[in-house]
Simulated scan of single mutants.
Amino acid sequence: MHPMLHDIRLVAFDLDGTLIDSVPDLAAAVDAMLGDHGLAPVGEAKVRDWVGNGSRKLVERALAFALERVPDASALDAAHERFLAHYHAAPCERTRVFPGVREALEALHAQGLILTLITNKPKAFIDPILEALSLRTFFAMTLGGDSLPEKKPHPAPLLHLAAHFDVDPARCLMVGDSRHDVEAGKRAGFRTLAVPYGYNHGEPVSRSDPDALVESLRELV
């Protein structure tokens, strides 16, 4: 095993940008939402830099770009509702598992580690996506951005998992692709490990100073 896993009992994974490349489906839903409002599509490249803070923030960033101003609350509410409808209709048509992820999850699960998932994506989308990609059975618990009052980078979701499974945070590892994952892990007292291929608002995740960085999750086993 990777040295970062020494004495670790629980591993918390981020989803989008860490385990799966979901931007193609997210971008399709964003562009459809913009089309509903008579606005031009923004495409995958823009959306790739905007994800990571939950669906409402994604929609806010897309609207602000398209309108060239910050949308008011009522416009954002309406746009977010349309985005959720489009994404719910096709959450996993072009989403793919990153190379090395399945092998890592299989090996860690076989070794008896408690595998969990903490994403800022709405909870309702998690199981359908995991089921479609045959990943659901690996996780003992999953938390979405609306599962608790706080979401990453707040440490509350991580501490919730540690407490639920009665594991000291010092024996937990947060694995993610963004500064929000690293910050949440550090604030919760978890070890932090990052991957560089995901979504981090256009900046290298190494700048967030994770405890370790791997090019592929395959390196964990």
Rank of each mutant, 00 (worst) to 15 (best):
M1N: 01
H2C: 06
P3D: 12
P3K: 14
M4P: 10
M4C: 14
L5G: 01
H6N: 13
D7S: 14
R9I: 08
L10N: 14
F13I: 03
D16E: 10
G17N: 01
T18A: 00
I20N: 00
D21I: 01
V23F: 02
A27N: 08
A29F: 00
A32C: 07
M33V: 02
M33N: 01
L34K: 12
L34Q: 10
L34W: 11
G35V: 06
D36N: 14
G38Q: 06
L39Q: 15
L39F: 13
E44N: 12
A45W: 05
A45R: 14
R48V: 04
G52R: 08
G52C: 11
S55G: 12
R56L: 03
V59C: 14
E60I: 09
L63Y: 00
F65G: 00
A66P: 08
L67A: 06
E68D: 15
V70K: 09
V70Q: 11
A73N: 14
S74D: 15
A75P: 12
A75W: 00
A75E: 15
L76T: 07
P91T: 00
C92V: 15
C92N: 13
E93P: 02
E93V: 07
R94H: 13
T95F: 01
R96F: 01
R96H: 03
G100F: 07
R102G: 01
R102A: 07
E103Y: 09
E103Q: 15
A104S: 09
L105F: 08
L108A: 08
L115K: 11
L115N: 08
T116E: 06
T116I: 09
N120P: 13
K123F: 10
A124Y: 15
I126A: 07
D127E: 15
P128V: 09
I129R: 12
L130E: 11
L130H: 07
E131H: 14
L135E: 05
T137M: 08
F138C: 08
A140L: 04
M141A: 11
M141F: 00
T142L: 06
G144T: 12
G144W: 12
G145E: 07
S147N: 13
L148E: 09
L148Q: 09
P153Q: 03
H154K: 10
P155T: 07
H160I: 02
A162H: 06
A163W: 01
H164A: 10
H164Y: 15
F165P: 12
D166T: 04
D166Q: 06
D168A: 00
M174T: 13
D177K: 06
S178W: 04
D181F: 02
D181E: 08
V182A: 03
E183P: 04
A184Y: 07
A184N: 03
G185N: 05
K186H: 13
K186R: 15
R187A: 13
G189D: 13
R191D: 08
T192E: 10
T192S: 10
Y199R: 01
Y199C: 00
N200S: 11
H201T: 05
G202P: 02
P204S: 00
V205R: 04
S206F: 02
S206Y: 06
D209V: 10
D209S: 14
A212I: 13
L213K: 03
V214L: 04
L217H: 06
L220V: 05
L220R: 04
